[in-house]
Design a protein around this nucleic acid. Sequence first.
DNA 1: GTTCTATTGTTACATATTGAGACAATAATA
DNA 2: TATTATTGTCTCAATATGTAACAATAGAAC
Lengths: 234, 234
Amino acid sequence: MTVLETQGFLPHIAFDSVIFGFSKGKLKILLMEYHDTGWLALPGGFVGKNEDLDEAAKRGLKERTGLDNIYLEQFYTFGNLSRFKPEVMQTIIAANGFNLNPDHWMLDRFISVSYFALIDFEKVILTPDELSDSIAWYEIENLPDLILDHSAIVAKALQTLRENLERKLIGGNLLPERFTMNELQQVYEAIFGQKLRRTTFQRKMLGLDILERHEKLYTGKSHKAPYLYSFRKV
Amino acid sequence: MTVLETQGFLPHIAFDSVIFGFSKGKLKILLMEYHDTGWLALPGGFVGKNEDLDEAAKRGLKERTGLDNIYLEQFYTFGNLSRFKPEVMQTIIAANGFNLNPDHWMLDRFISVSYFALIDFEKVILTPDELSDSIAWYEIENLPDLILDHSAIVAKALQTLRENLERKLIGGNLLPERFTMNELQQVYEAIFGQKLRRTTFQRKMLGLDILERHEKLYTGKSHKAPYLYSFRKV
DNA sequence: GTTCTATTGTTACATATTGAGACAATAATA
DNA sequence: TATTATTGTCTCAATATGTAACAATAGAAC
């Protein structure tokens, strides 16, 4: 049974997720490409009638990335009338070979409760949903056009991430368990979109007393080997 | 036609507003008391089928306080299953003399998109809604029990307000157009829940270059008269 | 082995910000 | 005119941050 045929979801309510990853010095997000149309959109889904809103977002994340236990934060709910464009959804569904009644629940107006997630790029196993050809990483600095208001959703997610980073440090969720100080700095630079001073960054991070220092990392490069760090467990 | 009889709202979607005011050195919010039950709740409402989500929240604010052009910010959407308690709404509606079918849309599961507002205490004209006996101010430090998860909604609103205050200054929205430095400091103290140092506060506020200094305020008290300030227009 | 290169961890010092108190100014009262 | 309460400003100490210098070191070149 496809999502189109089920009756098990709350009407008018969707969720969308801005899933951040970090690789090769770049901050990236996951986008899905719908069949034929070539349209790009954030991964999202619907809320089961017997499901917590947060659970729905976690389920969606698990389905697309295979990941559990992820940093996931709700940041805004988009509910403008202007995001109601039934012809967009109709086209996407038609490209998948379905022809829905105009009063089908999926063609109705939706508000989108939006979440952002921070994940370890290396750990994902990407799986498109039933309406999509692909799911893939796109650099945040160079995003293509997205359907509906999804570009605005990404912008707000990035703004929220920046504000959060200044208050409560969550940058580490984008890295593997152990990382070098330089890698951590690159994450911060990618999120803030600007270079940071190496010595100040190192002093501040160490001063926060949230990092644990481990063995050195010998990469084979001809210079001093950096220490590996992990975030201290609470 | 009462809200109960209309079909013009989106099902499953409500909004609730934490409306902050400041008076006599205390931070307060507006609560409504339902007929007979004595139950207290945040002012809220539903979203019209042809209405932006934000517009709905503004409309609700206008209906209860008479105020337009208000600082209003969406901060979270509550969507746990545990907030679905049809018997609560049923009881409230029954106390108003109605007897709804169990499948009436108002008895269904709702998610609540929550907003907080900052208003000038002096300017409100309070108006209860059709299910309530009263709407009134309650001190944030000494709140009674609220229905459903409304206490959690208030807690999250206060947390968001505190975080915002550190980043972008919005404390002035709780004061009249012109105010003394001491009044502004009291607002900040009420929001943060702690005393601040007078001289440091004054220096920081003046240094931010967002205040305009006006004439002095002669209160009749036997001491130096403070200047009045207003927030600089952008 | 010795020298060289790139990068790292740490220190030193200047500059900026904040904490804490002192002090002069002043509006009304006694 | 002296007194009281509060305000606006200044001073100095304590912290935090910006900036550069420097020693340590892993591997490559010789």
